[in-house]
Simulated scan of single mutants.
Amino acid sequence: MRLATAEINLTALAHNLAQVKRFAPNSKIMAVLKANAYGHGLVKIAQHLNGADAFAVARIDEALALRAGGLTKPIVLLEGFFNKADLPILLANNFQTIVHDENQLSAIESAKLDAPITCWLKINTGMHRLGIAPEQFDAFYSRLKATPNAKSTINLMTHFSCADDTNNTKTSQQISMFDTLVSGINQAHCLSNSAGIIAWPTGHGDWVRPGLMLYGVSPMENCTGEQHQLKPVMRLTTKVIAVRDVAAHERVGYGGRWQSDEPTKLAVVAMGYGDGYPRHAKEGTPVMIAGQRYGIVGSVSMDMISIDIGSNGNNVKVGDEVIMWGPELPVEEIAECADTIPYELLCNITPRVSYEYQR
């Protein structure tokens, strides 16, 4: 019996990429594939994003995996490099690097390279995570232009901190600061993540960086991907492995956290935190069996979850498919029930889950 399975819909992926182009028709697309393509499979997803102009990852090992998988598009390292010794690897594999601090800039200036590398200068306009301070911009830009180890094309980038909240003025302030700093400089600009693409068209720039929306999930507060005409790419399923009768007032699972008020039936499903399902999902978190919603009861275990299917749950049988999230049950809803965000749920899928790629 096939148990925990992540079904990946490649047709939905292509649809979502087309939606990115609809939102930002005048921008090039840097598809963000970090963290195993948000849990969807790094190389396989990249191989089916033919319409993207470049890929972006967080770490050099992710970039190397893409090259090993035969991907030839430009690859941008969103955190840059971490050691001067990495620079020849970047050059040999045609990787592009973010430059966000003095250590990276000094390493580029002092390196002995056979050819220049492409750099993206990242400016901190309010995220306060990575990026040079606005007052450092002129000096950093001039030094990158001057070193023979950097190509003369110095792309310019920033990152939004609150773009998912359209009522927050912070994004407008960041766009304004960035535009003022780079005014008159004829280089490519990249500001918008998925939320910026959807909600802040003035920040689209020459490049956009879609991540979560490529996978059919909304980056916005209190929204689902469907509201932006996105289609979920992942459908996480498993099977019922037991159906049990539970008497009134029996306690179920570790710690006896849940007690039945009346006689009922439980479906035990092969899914747990060992598969990446959130351990802290609340009682009542929905799953779907045979087209009907049922709620989780008791504690999520490593390998199993109990579902209250009610005293009339005779239509649920061993071997029935259980949908944990997918087109029929938005991952955004499951994330809310677990007091987390969809990003975490998707990225937490573990290696023992089987992947099936479908068109």
Rank of each mutant, 00 (worst) to 15 (best):
A139C: 07
S142P: 02
T171M: 04
A146P: 02
C162F: 09
Y141A: 04
T169G: 05
K170A: 15
D164L: 05
T147C: 01
P148I: 12
T171A: 11
M157Y: 05
K170L: 12
L156A: 09
A163S: 14
L144H: 03
K170S: 14
S152N: 13
A150H: 00
Y141E: 06
D164W: 07
Q136D: 13
A139R: 15
A146C: 08
N168I: 02
P148Q: 07
P134E: 11
F140S: 06
P148C: 08
A139G: 03
I154L: 10
F160A: 02
T147D: 00
Y141L: 14
F160T: 01
T166F: 02
P148V: 11
C162H: 14
A146E: 08
T166G: 07
I154A: 11
N149F: 07
K170T: 13
N167L: 15
F137Y: 05
T169F: 00
I154S: 10
T169R: 02
K170Y: 01
T153L: 08
K145G: 14
T158E: 06
L156C: 09
T147I: 06
T153R: 09
S142T: 15
N149A: 08
C162R: 13
A150K: 00
A150S: 11
N168E: 09
S161D: 12
P134M: 08
E135I: 03
L144P: 02
N168G: 05
T153C: 07
T158R: 09
S142K: 13
T158S: 15
P148K: 13
S161P: 00
F140L: 07
K170H: 09
M157L: 14
A133H: 11
D138N: 11
K170M: 13
T153M: 07
S161T: 04
A139V: 14
T171Q: 05
N149W: 06
